[in-house]
Design a protein around this nucleic acid. Sequence first.
RNA 1: GCGGGCGUAGCUCAGUCGGUUAGAGCGCGAGAUUGUGGCUCUCGAGGUCGCCGGUUCGAUCCCGGUCGCUCGCCCCA
Length: 415
Amino acid sequence: MVSQPQPVRGTHDLLPDDFRRHAHVVGVSRHVAARFGYAEMATPIFEVTEVFARTMGETSDVVSKEMYSFTDKGGEAITLRPEYTAGICRAFISNGLMQNVPVKVFAHGPMFRYERPQKGRQRQFHQIDIEAIGAAEPACDVEIIAVGHEILRELGLIDKATLELNSLGDPESRAHYRQVLVDYFTGHKDKLSKDSLERLGRNPLRILDSKDEGDRKIVANAPLLEESFNQAARDFFADVRRGLDALGIAYHVNPRLVRGLDYYTHTAFEFTTTHLGAQGALIAGGRYDGLIEQLGGPPTPGIGWAGGIERLAMLAGDVAVAVRPVALVPIGEAAEQAAPVMALKLRRAGLVVELAYKGKVGQRMKRADRAGASHAILVGDDELKAGEVTLRDLKDGSQEKLSLDAALAKLKARG
RNA sequence: GCGGGCGUAGCUCAGUCGGUUAGAGCGCGAGAUUGUGGCUCUCGAGGUCGCCGGUUCGAUCCCGGUCGCUCGCCCCA
C-alpha cells in the first residue's frame, strides 16, 4: 500500500461537527459585533513580509521565528499572516480610510505561525478579530472590551473566563518604564534566569511575566509600571476602568500583563481561562496608537483584539444541528422517478430534505433516522397514483396519509 | 528551538513476562423483517500492531532512529 497522505503538522481538518462549532463562534461574534456597529471585512491571507516585520517588532518571537515566509516567483518577500491587526491597518492605509474614521471592523479567518503544536495551539489556526481605528478615547477601549465580553457571554463562556486588565501607558510612559526596568534588572543580572537575561535585551517587560521561581522573587520588588505613568496615562487608565465598572464588566488589574508585540500602548487586556492547559488566552488585545504610523500612514490611534476560534469552540462544546431534515422515501419505480421532483418542491418551500435513494425500505428508513430526520415522507407507487404520501413522525411512529401539499403545510407549521 | 509521555480496526481501548489464527465495545455492512427507522438476535467486512533499521531461531512486544500525537517550557489566540 502506498503511504497515506497526512495533514501538515499543526494543521487540522474541520469535519462537519468541528465546522459547526467554529461557525457558531464566528456567527455569534459577527452578530454581536454588528450590534456594536462593527462591519465585517477581510484582508488577504498573505501580505508583503514588511507589513508584519515593521509592525510587530523585529525582536518579537512571532517575527523572529514563527512566520511562514517565502519568496514568490516575482522575487517578492511574502508572509502568511500570523495575525490580523497588521493587515487591517495596511488596508486602512492602502484604501485611504483615514477619511472614514473611526473605522470599526470585524474579521475572521486563518492565521499561520510556525510553532510547536499543543492543545489549543496549531500552526494554522483561526481567529476572530475586532479593530477600531481612529478612535483615541478611552470610551472606545471600553467598547472594544465590551464586545469581547458580550461574545463570551453569548457563547456561555463568561463564567469560564477572567478579564485581566493593565495599562502600558502612553509611549512616553512606556519608554520611561522600560529604562527603569532595565536599570533594575541589570542590578540583579547574576540572579536572573537564562530566559530572562535574554529578555532583558529584547523585551524587558516580559520578565515581569516569567514563571521562573528565582525571577519571581526579583520581580516582586521590581518598580511598578504605574509609577512611571505621567498624568495623561494615569487619567486614561482611570477612565477605562470607570467605563468598565459602569457596564458591570468585572476585571482584574494585573500589573504583570504585558503584551508580546511591540505596538501596544495604554490598555492591554486578556480574557483568560484555566480550562485549556497552558494556553490561557481566549481573547487578547489592546491599544496600538503608534502602529499605523509605523506602517507609513498618518498618526492614527487604534485598538483591537483577537480571539482564538479553536480555543473558544473547544470550550463552548457541541452545537446542535440547526434544522432537522425531513426524509423523503420513495418506494418503487414510479415513485423513484417522481421523488427528486417532489424533493425539489419541498426544498424550494424551505424544508431541509434528505432524499433516500438507496436500498430497501428498511435501509432507507434507517438512513433517515441516522440523518436525524424528524419525519419521513413515504411515497409508494400506489400512493403516487392516488396523489397521496404517508407522513410519518419518527419520534412517536404515528403516521397519516395526505397530499404532498398538506404534508408540506403541516411540516412548515411545525417549523 | 528544548524536555516528558504515547502510537494496536473508522472511533475508544485491551493484549502478548518475545512464540504459530492479535481481541472487545462502539460504529459500519447483510439477514431475522421482499412498504416502515429506533430495541433485540445472528452473521460478516475491516489490522503490513505508525515507519525504517538493529538484537534474536523468532519482534506488535526489547533497543536505536524517524514521523505523528500529546503534556510542559519559550511564546502566543
